[in-house]
Amino acid sequence: MIEITLNNKNISVDVEPDMPLLYVLRDELKLKGTKFGCGVGQCGACTVHLNGQAIRSCITPISAVNKQKITTIEGLSTDGDHKVQKAWREHKVPQCGYCQSGQMMSAASLLANNASPSDEEVVEHMQGNICRCGTYKRIKKAIHAAADMES
């Protein structure tokens, strides 16, 4: 039995200890906002927060996060009003939208650590998140816009 605090709720799951967190979230807990893109830590579609830091859930065994705090896109805010989500709406970032949960979770962890990142810092931090639709220009703009918002 593995216990985690998921989106501020304490839960326990009974799964194979080496099952990656991504599949626990999607298949066992039916939280589908976190996406599969590559399964090997290459694309960032599966990004969630472990104790506030962005991690790739597809390569994180559930046993490695026992007794820790996990946040997914569903728990990023209560009303979809995290400043990153607001900025994403304002700049109409998504095209197909599939990568965007991961993009927003990466962006939120960047801003939590660095309230006002430079262009270079944004690029450096967001390199692990692929958007095949090519929304990078708007991702950059939205991150700067979110940084400028009062939280």
Partner: peptide
């Protein structure tokens, strides 16, 4: 530029793709 129909669902992780069918 009307508001994108799926925008709210996408930014809250609620948009449903083929991979998400349960």
């Amino acid at each position: 530029n009307v508001k994108q129909v799926d925008l709210d669902n996408i930014v809250t992780g609620q948009a449903e793709y083929a991979q998400d069918i349960e």
